[in-house]
Design a protein around this nucleic acid. Structure first.
Lengths: 195, 195
DNA sequence: TGTCGAACTGACCGACCGTGCTATTTATTA
DNA sequence: TAATAAATAGCACGGTCGGTCAGTTCGACA
């Protein structure tokens, strides 16, 4: 339980990089094998199919997102600070990470919105989980601030919207001002909802 | 200048449908030829390369967007009504069109944000053009309403953000409430900017 | 150190990819 | 209608795809 799982881990990490550029479908086993200095069949032996590799990559991305974005926010006390930390972490996930070069979940959303299957199912599930996190953190901030009623779902929608366009502006248009636009938008969003 | 261009047009239309589902890269000439009842080489003869077909598809999408979304807005008088028409048309383009099933520009943004080449270049150009349209329409509404100063670029950012998340919610999560969330968000955006 | 299973290789499969080339059918026009 | 041009089909190419399998190398452990 050492050499094998080490290799497997390095495959998944490199696959994550390639998937961010080419998508999980566009990524090929041959190119991936070359990148990790393995024969195609040697690589393939670790996963019984391309699909199971795709699922492993998605799982890896979810783990990273949880520890890089969600966990630091939940480590803060309930309220506005936790909410702000969650947003800042999300922005940083999208625009900062050099190894990341954009949010892979957004890329995969476009790639799989019309491709039924286990990858899409897991992606949808993870999106719902993230929505739940945003909703709960925002709800906590609203309670702390005494805001009632509070339309948590609407808040979640606009929170995500700001992030999605940050990816768009940052990655496609290469506009460096995206980040401050996102932060300005979020500040007004918070003010609007009183949290 | 009749039979040939008819065929070419039907190829481009079918290619647009397939590109929305599979992307412009994932779309294949063989499958496309079958769909339009043509041999692969018969189809290929209309375009000297796959790339020129991709560009033709993109151009077709731009034309449709211009006539379906931009033109109806510009037909309205300057001000809030024109702005609202632009947004409503954009929402409808994303969520309504049955033949459309989502905004292809958003899909292509994810597909080409890391694929340099003429397709990406044309896509970026068209995005900038749309941004200019939003900016000018919003600026007109601001002037009409006597709003000064008006941060037009920030407004454009948030306008687009609402649309992007509508596509996300509508296509990946299949949440039918996306549309009303988008409209709620836009109403508050207008109120915030006083236009 | 010898053994045994895990890790890995290399050759290969059928399918399909984009792309040419040539022949044949079909549409236009003189 | 005959001549000419355009549109389309057939076929083959080099290459790559995901995937299989028999055999070789290598690492852990008795």
């Amino acid at each position: 339980m050492s050499k094998g799982s080490d290799t497997r881990q390095s495959i998944v990490e490199e696959a994550l990089n390639q998937a961010r550029r080419l998508g999980l479908e566009g990524m090929t086993l041959g190119e991936l094998a070359t990148s990790v200095n393995l024969s195609k069949s040697g690589l393939f032996a670790h996963f019984k199919s391309k699909e199971s590799l795709q699922l492993a990559v998605l799982e890896e991305a979810i783990d990273r997102f949880t520890s890089d974005v969600v966990a630091p926010a939940l480590a803060k006390p309930r309220g506005g600070e936790r909410l702000q930390t969650l947003f800042t972490g999300y922005v940083s996930w999208i625009a900062d990470k050099p190894w990341n070069a954009g949010c892979i979940f957004i890329s995969l959303s476009a790639e799989y919105d019309d491709r039924p299957g286990p990858v899409r199912d897991r992606l949808v599930e993870s999106e719902h989980q993230f929505h739940d996190v945003i909703r709960r953190v925002a709800q906590g901030a609203a309670e702390r601030a005494g805001v009632d009623p509070f339309d948590a779902d609407q808040f979640v929608y606009e929170f995500k919207a700001i992030g999605l366009n940050l990816q768009h502006v940052h990655r496609l248009l290469r506009d460096p001002r995206g980040r401050e636009r996102a932060e300005t938008a979020f500040a007004r969003l918070r003010a609007n909802f009183g949290i």
